[in-house]
Amino acid sequence: MLIGPFVNGAAVLIGGLVGAFFGDRIPERLRIALPLTFGLSSMGLGIALIVKIHSLPVVVLSLILGAAIGELIYLERRIGMLGNLAKGIANRFSADDGKLDPAVFTEKFVAILVLFCASGTGIIGAMTEGMTHDANILFVKSIMDIFTAAIFATVLGYAVALIAVPQLIIQLCIASAAVLILPHTTPEMMGDFTAAGGFIMLATGFRIAGIKSFPVGNLLPALVLVMPISHLWTLFIH
């Protein structure tokens, strides 16, 4: 039985609810400093994943094609619409006065949605539990996520708690599909997949820390492309 995705979802839900409830009671200096730390942690995790790369051309090509597809289908804009929908739903159950500028809300919501739902840690953790029933990676992610969700919820409100729903669905799908996918993968394919996730995590960290607003949502198709491209590259070029 899968338990990691449910624990991780509960962590985001609880963190989001607690952070939104306490809101302004959390010191401003803490609300400013911790997101910088989360951004730094995301960048560090991204670098740790990138070093597992097998073929740099494969990952770069996947990121370029993935970004092109994401731009053409306005993927990040659609994710932003999902965020605003979540904000609207959450506002029905809270006294949020909508003081946060919609553009600022979308900017931050997209970044944390990718951080929670499409991080290399979550994807790899879900795949690992699906294959080996070892949920330790997702347990570690849950510890980080409960604090991350709480801090961002002080700014974005109860909408952060709703991220638990798509995160749970994504992780359950990945864990269920892992039994079918992983037997057909190679260490080279997994290395390139992990590295692609690392690049996205690095870009997410820059965005969260306010250094550079990479369109991380538009990069997500790269995670779908990188394994097939890695296989074809190894088959026909190396």
Rank of each mutant, 00 (worst) to 15 (best):
A149P: 00
T154E: 03
I137K: 00
F152L: 10
R78G: 06
V104N: 00
A153Q: 05
L82E: 03
T132M: 08
L113Y: 12
L75G: 08
D97S: 02
A86N: 10
G83C: 13
E129G: 09
F152W: 08
T121W: 06
G80T: 12
A103S: 15
T148I: 09
A159D: 10
I112A: 04
I151C: 01
P102N: 12
V114N: 04
N84T: 13
V110C: 13
I124L: 15
S142E: 11
Q171M: 13
D145W: 02
S119I: 02
Y158G: 04
G88N: 14
A135Q: 01
P166L: 11
I89H: 03
R92M: 07
S94M: 07
I73K: 00
A161W: 10
T121Q: 11
T154I: 04
F93M: 07
T148N: 04
N136F: 10
M127H: 01
V165E: 05
I137Q: 00
V165I: 15
L138T: 08
F139G: 06
S94D: 02
L100A: 06
G125W: 08
S119T: 07
S94F: 06
L138G: 06
D101I: 09
K141N: 03
L138P: 01
G125K: 09
A150R: 06
I143H: 01
A90L: 12
V140T: 11
A95M: 01
H133P: 01
I146W: 03
D134G: 04
F147E: 10
I124V: 13
G125F: 09
S119M: 05
A90C: 13
T128L: 09
L82H: 06
A149R: 11
A150L: 12
A161N: 09
C117A: 10
L115H: 05
P102I: 14
T132S: 10
L113W: 05
I112T: 04
L115N: 03
G125M: 11
M127T: 08
K87H: 12
L100M: 15
K99T: 10
V160H: 01
D101C: 09
A161S: 14
S119A: 12
F109L: 05
T121H: 09
I143E: 00
A159P: 12
L82I: 14
L113P: 01
A149M: 05
G98A: 03
L72S: 14
P102C: 09
M81S: 08
I137N: 00
G98F: 06
A126M: 08
V140W: 00
F105K: 09
K87R: 14
I89S: 08
A126N: 04
A95D: 02
G83M: 08
F105D: 11
I163P: 02
F116N: 10
A159H: 07
L72N: 13
D101Q: 13
G120K: 04
F147I: 15
T148A: 11
F116S: 07
A135E: 01
I163L: 15
A164H: 06
M127D: 00
V165W: 07
Y74E: 15
T148Q: 12
D145K: 02
T106Y: 11
I123D: 04
R77D: 15
V104L: 13
V110I: 14
C117K: 00
D145G: 01
G98Q: 07
L113G: 02
A159N: 09
I79N: 00
C173G: 05
G157L: 03
R92V: 06
A164Y: 12
R92K: 12
A161V: 11
K108M: 13
